[in-house]
Design a protein around this nucleic acid. Structure first.
Lengths: 165, 165
DNA sequence: GGATGAATACTCGGATATTTATTGTCCGAGTCATCCTGG
DNA sequence: CCAGGATGACTCGGACAATAAATATCCGAGTATTCATCC
């Protein structure tokens, strides 16, 4: 199991956007520079966020990205699913049905969800629940609480110079 | 996020082995036929289980695989980690440190684990905890409870003919 | 001086290569059972 | 009939391709700004 690198980029960008004043727009170029990553590739992931209604994009000069909803109404799960997709990580191929034990006339009993599948689904639900419970607003607060005032001031100043109404 | 197909195969095989009498050995060929999958590829995953001390392999004719521990002492997590690896799904590249906000002399403050990383780790822990709590013995019981007696008898007969001491 | 129009610079969006990981296959080393041979 | 040895068949183990996915990049469509021009 491996999470796409784009998930990290997407969540970081979402947190930055959540820290901006409501309605403020930030260009993908600024987001890429802020995180020290490739702008072209970051845009690809931001497109996924737009497609999933997590972000909105504004074209043209003075354009950029902003959150589609309030930071309190957006969870980390929203961002992760926007990039990784909503498909479950574990896909049950029902391989039991392919074995000799399933060749008889009672193959119907194999239709009940297999216990293994059920366990994996429970695990994934627990994973999602943690991410669903964490809002972007909470993350912004958590990040702010860990940094000293001077760093916050410098970061804020850097961002303000690039914000568009 | 996507789980390898080998995980499904590995867990199914582990459950079958857990259902056998203690010490019984079953060849990879039989496991592959039982699940209707490629023997060559299945062996690759069984090797991973052996490397992780989940299974033991017996070479030569009358050889095969058996669990390395009692089914009550083996969890689904053991099998999943054996195949997928123990690395966390989310790897924090600490991309904050690469941005302009981290260029000052206070870069040390970025050493504290970022809040995003912490959230992802909590989610993964919850996921692992569910899998760790489920033993192979419990899975065998759960599968048995869902099948009708006739199917169990036929399956058992099929397996017994291929078991090696 | 003000308004209008075209040119311009900057933005996102999607189509296109490159690298990596997963999936799938094959041949070789090792081992136990079997069969044959000799006593 | 019994013991010993060579043979053979079946097993796992690791090295080797093919395929799918993630990563990375580039060029094009669209828009607000800006500047020059005309009234």
């Amino acid at each position: 199991m491996r999470l796409s690198e784009g998930v990290e980029w997407g969540v970081h960008c979402a947190v930055v956007l959540a820290a901006l004043p409501p309605g403020a727009v930030l260009a993908g170029k600024a987001l890429a520079e802020f995180h020290g990553v490739s702008e072209s590739y970051l845009l690809k992931h931001l497109q996924a966020l737009v497609a999933a209604r997590v972000c909105e994009s504004v074209p043209g000069p003075r354009g950029g990205f902003r959150l589609a909803r309030a930071p309190e109404a957006l969870s980390v799960l929203d961002v992760v699913e926007a990039i990784e997709g909503r498909q479950p990580a574990f896909r049950c191929g029902e391989i039991r049905q392919r074995g000799p034990a399933a060749q008889g006339p009672d193959a119907a009993v194999y239709r009940v969800p297999c216990a293994i599948h059920a366990t994996m689904l429970r695990a994934e639900s627990a994973w999602r629940e943690v991410l669903r419970a964490q809002t972007l607003a909470e993350l912004v607060a958590a990040v702010g609480a860990k940094l000293d005032p001077e760093t916050i001031r410098a970061t804020r100043e850097w961002l303000v110079g690039r914000i568009r109404a």
